[in-house]
Design a protein around this nucleic acid. Structure first.
Length: 305
DNA sequence: CCGGAACCTTGTTG
DNA sequence: ACAACAAGGTTCC
């Protein structure tokens, strides 16, 4: 059983770009659209010119306006971060890359899986976990599994998770689910808390470091000022924003043989929040998405200088 | 608090 | 063919 609905767009959205931009790892192409499991639903999405068609299986609620943050005032955000010529150019070159508003549990799990990993495998691992622990839902594309609940995952065994191909992350996922279930943290309640509190709370969870905490804050907990720093953003900053960093931080970023210490990470992300303002996360999203193009080095990096 | 190594697995590279 | 390396980092020492 399903219902079909459509949404007329009055704000830029590029569905495919947004869903495949590594903010989330639960959507796969099917036919001319995308299918994904989130909450109590399996959702199929199809974009035409100015319309999003969506079909919701499983009886749950799902709202594209919420998920794609179409309720944000896009012009205001663009104006806010568009003072930066690089970001402005990126947005103009391809409008419609949106920041998602995901379920915090799902987002947290997927980003714990994302550590020291690549997009394709993260998607595969997520689907494996869904298949092993999520309820089945019938769709016209066959049976699809829901995203597993916190409860079902906390009852998993380590071996089952290893069987999903999570590798050494299996232990983090299990500890994470159990830590949350023990009641230490209510993720939903974090939505209303300020950035610093959200960050420090998430950092206390197993498998969660500064980068994952920032991603979860940005993509599921309303912290639009969050500016996650991964290897690609690191290169973008060293390459295009050295003047913001200062001599010391620039040299630390530039030397990729070393990973970022916690204090360095914090210092840099703080600088970027100061620079871009309350919508720094939108700017980060643009810079990340285009990072491979922006970094000349990205194409020659393998030639081991 | 800081620096460095180890870490599952898969796909790509030379 | 096949060893080496990278992939949206975190943990442990």
């Amino acid at each position: 059983m399903y219902r079909t609905d459509s949404l007329a767009l009055n704000t830029p959205l590029n569905l495919g770009v947004t869903l495949s931009s590594a903010q989330t790892f639960q959507w796969v192409r099917r036919g001319r659209g995308w299918i994904g499991a989130t909450g109590d639903s399996v959702v199929y999405l199809l974009q035409t010119q100015n319309t999003v068609l969506f079909r919701v299986y499983g009886g749950g609620e799902w709202d594209p306006v919420s998920y794609f943050r179409l309720d944000d005032d896009y012009p205001t955000i663009i104006r806010s971060i568009g003072f930066d010529p690089i970001v402005r150019r990126l947005i103009n070159s391809q409008p419609g890359l949106r920041v998602t508003r995901q379920d915090p549990w799902e987002c947290l799990l997927m980003f714990v899986l994302s550590t020291n990993n690549n997009y394709k495998r993260i998607v595969k691992m997520t689907l494996n976990v869904n298949r092993a622990f999520g309820k089945k839902v019938e769709t016209e594309f066959g049976v699809v599994h829901l995203f597993p609940t916190l409860e079902s995952l906390s009852a998993a065994s380590l071996q089952e998770l290893v069987g999903c191909g999570l590798g050494y992350r299996s232990k983090y996922v299990l500890e994470l689910a159990r830590a949350l279930r023990e009641g230490g943290v209510d993720l939903g309640r974090l939505r209303g808390k300020p950035y610093e509190e959200v960050r420090s709370t998430l950092l206390g969870l197993p498998g969660v470091g500064p980068k994952v905490a920032d991603c979860v804050s940005l993509f599921s907990l309303e912290k639009l000022e969050s500016f996650p720093i991964d290897t690609w953003i690191r290169r973008v900053l060293a390459e295009l924003y050295p003047h913001l960093l200062g001599e010391h931080l620039y040299r630390v970023l530039k030397d990729e043989s070393k990973s970022l210490g916690v204090s360095v990470y914090q210092a840099i992300s703080q600088k970027m929040r100061n620079y871009f303002g309350v919508y720094a996360g939108y700017a980060q999203n643009q810079l990340y998405y285009h990072s491979k193009k922006l970094i000349k080095k990205g194409f020659t990096r393998r030639s081991k200088s």
